[in-house]
Design a protein around this nucleic acid. Sequence first.
DNA 1: TGGATAATTGAAAAGGATTTTCAGTAAGGG
DNA 2: CCCTTACTGAAAATCCTTTTCAATTATCCA
Lengths: 141, 141
Amino acid sequence: MVDNPWLEQLQAAGYRITAARRAVTEVMQSSERALTPIEVYDAARKRDRRLGLVTVYRTLEKLEALGLIQRVHHEHSCQAFLRAGEGHQHLLLCERCRRAILFEGDDLDALFERVGEETGFEIRSHWLQLYGLCWDCQTDS
Amino acid sequence: MVDNPWLEQLQAAGYRITAARRAVTEVMQSSERALTPIEVYDAARKRDRRLGLVTVYRTLEKLEALGLIQRVHHEHSCQAFLRAGEGHQHLLLCERCRRAILFEGDDLDALFERVGEETGFEIRSHWLQLYGLCWDCQTDS
DNA sequence: TGGATAATTGAAAAGGATTTTCAGTAAGGG
DNA sequence: CCCTTACTGAAAATCCTTTTCAATTATCCA
Ligand SMILES: [Mn+2]
Ligand SMILES: [Mn+2]
Ligand SMILES: [Zn+2]
Ligand SMILES: [Zn+2]
């Protein structure tokens, strides 16, 4: 009956599958870039005309709690959401079209060691985002 | 007359030196951690009792524009400000006491090259933040 | 050293985004 | 199918930030 892995996860977590959640979920799953709540609302309303903005907020909150989407921080405004990958990942963001790509594999151990020694900190995690221009945005214009 | 480098910079940029700006500036200069506008307000009011929150916002905006302070992003809330260092820097944040340390020198060129090749992106900048426990927070408790 | 002048201020109002409340609706277990 | 209770959208409430505005004051110049 439930054909979608995210919806299955919602259901497994004890939530009900509704038209509203289906719409928001599908929008988030198919977006190439991070979306603000209003953008999600606009896109999801094409799938469920009666959807309310409040429900978008509530659904995003649940998807985030389940680790299916993540919050993406830009220099200002940090209220955009993007599908999350499995495990530890990093983000590569196009400054022009906002396309987002997840990648993994950085080797920062030497850096952690150096900084840890210099500062006395015990380093536990990190956050790395790259910004640039995607291929399309380099060429056209 | 003006004894403080940040105030000198404000003045050089054509702004006037006022009690309000002096208070906000001194708070930001002496803070070991990123502060929200309200936290700045509370701290700065100890130096200038009549200070208004609006002026805190306006002063932070100017200090940021001059590159003297920077916005710090935490997982939620991204409205905290911290003194900025010179040039390109990274942040090391204590998860317990929120102390912030600036450091420089990471060698991510190999990573940029790899990711650039795999994705077709032209990488232009990056953001790196480390999280952990400062020395004091490791020991006490 | 005064005044003139324009920048700056704080309070109040406006604006925007997010959260809460609530009565009606509908998912899904039995 | 029903019943229960989670879920919904609309409206109201909140919270944070920005704008407006009249009063104040830093700085320039006579
Ligand atoms: Mn990593
Ligand atoms: Mn760097
Ligand atoms: Zn692009
Ligand atoms: Zn942020």
